[in-house]
Design a protein around this nucleic acid. Sequence first.
DNA 1: TATTGACCTTAACGCTGCGTAAAGGTTTAT
DNA 2: ATAAACCTTTACGCAGCGTTAAGGTCAATA
Lengths: 257, 257
Amino acid sequence: MEYTVQKLARIAGISARALRYYDEIGILKPARINSSGYRIYGKAEVDRLQQILFYKELGVGLDRVREIIDSPSFDSLVALYEHRRQLLDQKIRLEQLINSVDQTITEKEGGRAMRDSEKFAGFKQRLIEENEKKYGQEIREKYGYETVDQSNQALKGMSQEQYKQFEELGQQVLSTLEEAIATGDPGGELAQKTAGLHARWLTISWGNYSREAHAGLAQMYVDDPRFTAFYDEKVQAGATTFLRDAVLIYTGTRFCS
Amino acid sequence: MEYTVQKLARIAGISARALRYYDEIGILKPARINSSGYRIYGKAEVDRLQQILFYKELGVGLDRVREIIDSPSFDSLVALYEHRRQLLDQKIRLEQLINSVDQTITEKEGGRAMRDSEKFAGFKQRLIEENEKKYGQEIREKYGYETVDQSNQALKGMSQEQYKQFEELGQQVLSTLEEAIATGDPGGELAQKTAGLHARWLTISWGNYSREAHAGLAQMYVDDPRFTAFYDEKVQAGATTFLRDAVLIYTGTRFCS
DNA sequence: TATTGACCTTAACGCTGCGTAAAGGTTTAT
DNA sequence: ATAAACCTTTACGCAGCGTTAAGGTCAATA
C-alpha cells in the first residue's frame, strides 16, 4: 500500500511532476521520505489526492481546492456555489465571443469589408457588454427581472427597414436550406450557412440572440406539427429535422433527444 | 495624427505596457522612433491595432491574430471557423464542469458523504468524457451522427428502478415548486433547488442532460398551453412561468424572450 | 560483479499576456 | 528652476505544470 511518485502518478492518471509540484506547494505531501530521499505515499495520501483531483476536475484552482478540503463541509458547499457562479460567468463570456465570431464570419462571407464605423461600433458594443456584465446583476436585483425584460421588449418595435430584411432572410433561409438538404450533411458548409441565416433571422425578430433559444426553437420546430408542416411543405419532407440538426451543430448543442 | 504610447493606449483603451509588449513580440511596431527614443505611432498603426484588438476581443491568441491579419482574407475566414470550433469545445467543457458541480452540490446537500466507489465512478466518467472529446468527432465523421444518436438512445431503455425515482422526483418537483413560489424569488434557494430537482428528473427521462435543452424546455412549458395548464393546475396559477424563470437562472441562460 | 535500464532526486527555464515596480531620461508647465 | 507628467529599458511575477539537465538508487541481467 505504499507508492513512489510514478506509481501513484500512474494510478491517479497524472504526471509525476504534478505530484512533486503538489508537494512543493504543500497541498499534498508524501507520508514520509525514505532513506534515499524518495517520496513515499500511503493510503491517506491516495484519498487526499483523489479529493484534490476531483475538485480540480471541476475546474477549481489548487488554492481553492486546499481551502475546500481543509475546511468543514459547510464551507465547501459555499465554495462550490461560488465556483458554479464563476463557471456560469465564464460560459456567458464564451457565448458572447462565439456570437461575435459568428457575426464576423457572416460579415466576411458577405464579402463586405468592415468599415471603420462598424469597427468602432464593435468597440461600443464591447463597452455596453462590459457594462452589462458589471452592473447587469445589480440592476436586476434592484428592479427585478420584469424591468429588464421590458427594456428588452422595447428593442423589439424598432425600425421599419428591418422588416424588409426579415422577409428577405426568411426566403434565403428556405432556399439555402433546400440546397443544404441536397448535400445531406447537416454539419456541412451549406447547412451551417443556413443555420447562420436562420440565426440572423431570429436576431431580427427577437431583437437579440441567444444560442440556447436558437437550439430550443429548432427542437420545437420538430416537436410542433405546425412548424414541421411549414418547412416540410415549403421545402421538402424532412426539412425541419435537417434544419434542427444543422442548428444544433451550429449552436454547439450536444445531442439531447 | 501621431501618437506616443500612452496617447494611443488611451484611445484604444488598453495599457501602454500592452503596446510595448506588442512592439516586443513584433505584432505592432511603431511607425518610427523619435530622437529621444520614444515610440511614435501613425495612422496605419492605429488601424492595425484596431484589427488586433478586434480579434483579441474574440478571444483569439496574439500569435493567431498575427497570422490572421498578415494573411489574405481567405485564410482569416478559415481561422475564424477554427476559432469558433475551439470556443465551442471550451464551452462544452465548461458545461460538463458545471454539470459535475451541480451533481456534487446536490449530493452534498443530500448530506450523503460520497463513497469511494462513487469517487472512482467519477474518474471513470472523466475517462469516458476525455475519450469522447478525443475521438468523438472522429467517430462522428466516420459513422455519421445517427450512430452516435443511436448509442445515446441505447442508454435510454436501461434500468427499471429508475422509473420509481422518476415518479418520486416528479412529485418532489411539484411540492418544492409550491414552496418556492411562496418565497416569490426564482433566484432563491428553494427555487434553485426546484430547478435542480427538475434537472435530475430530466436527466433520468432523457438519459443525459444538457442545460440548453433544459432551458429550452422550460421556455416551451410556458409557450405550450398543455404544459402551462399542467403546472398551473397541479400547483397554482403562474407556476409554469415561475418554474421557467427558476430554470433560466439555474441554467445560466440569459434573457431571451 | 559490472553494467544496463528503469527509477528517483533537485534545480531551473518556459509557456501567455501583460501588471507592476525600479531606475533613470525628456518634455511641458508653472 | 523645478515639479509633474511623460518616456525608456530591464526584469520579476502569475498558474500549473512540461521539459530538459545533471546526477543518485535499485533490480535484474550478462
